[in-house]
Write a protein that binds this DNA or RNA. Structure first.
Lengths: 109, 109
DNA sequence: CGGGATCCTCACAGATACTG
DNA sequence: CAGTATCTGTGAGGATCCCG
């Protein structure tokens, strides 16, 4: 990640940037999800992309990965307590997204 | 931008994504800035990159551009009232960035 | 089902040079 | 000073195949 000593906003971008990360975190706020389940929820990225984003989030202590010794294999992802502290960010983003979408209806698109 | 009817979080990512956009908006929360001034503040992107990000933010109604007929030329960028509604998002990001940086000091480096 | 290994590509960011 | 126009590269992300 190599965050370094920069503006805190930039730091957050480094951690939550990535094409799917915000959606992943947002969805995991509702509780643990299996890999395939999560994949569908966030908009169907490639396996590789989802895996990589999850690994990075894991490395940053945002997401926890739990492997169940079952057949068929099951892997669950969840937010760590620290990951949950991102809730305000995601909620703010969600709220603003709603406002933006509504605005596109009133002003000219 | 082609936002379409998707998850509000994704919508916000579409608008505020981009490598420099969060920093641009964050800096403009303090008031209008000239092009070169803004450029230095956000971490010295290329002129082209900054221009493109600003144009997109303009198109989305986040940023206003004012050209002064002076010599030397002066162009000021500021947040529109609507752009200011992004303040909560940026503040949440800033706050979380601080927490993350502090966490890196306590947990393993 | 989850995901590692490979290969690919294309969007986006940087560098440079020129203009009003 | 604040751009525009090209040209170039880099790497995040997609497609595919294979494996436990």
């Amino acid at each position: 990640m190599t965050v370094g000593r920069k503006c805190p906003v930039e730091t957050t971008v480094d951690v939550t940037g990535g094409k799917w990360k915000p959606m992943i975190i947002y969805r995991l706020l509702d509780g643990p999800r299996r890999f395939g389940e999560l994949r569908r929820l966030v908009g169907d990225p490639s396996q590789r992309s989802l895996t990589m984003q999850l690994r990075e989030l894991e490395a940053d202590g945002i997401v926890a990965r739990e492997v169940f010794a079952e057949v068929p294999p099951r892997v669950e992802y969840s937010l760590t307590p620290f990951g949950q502290t991102l809730a305000p960010v995601l909620m703010a983003m969600r709220d603003w997204g709603v406002a933006f979408q509504e605005r596109r209806l009133s002003t000219k698109g």
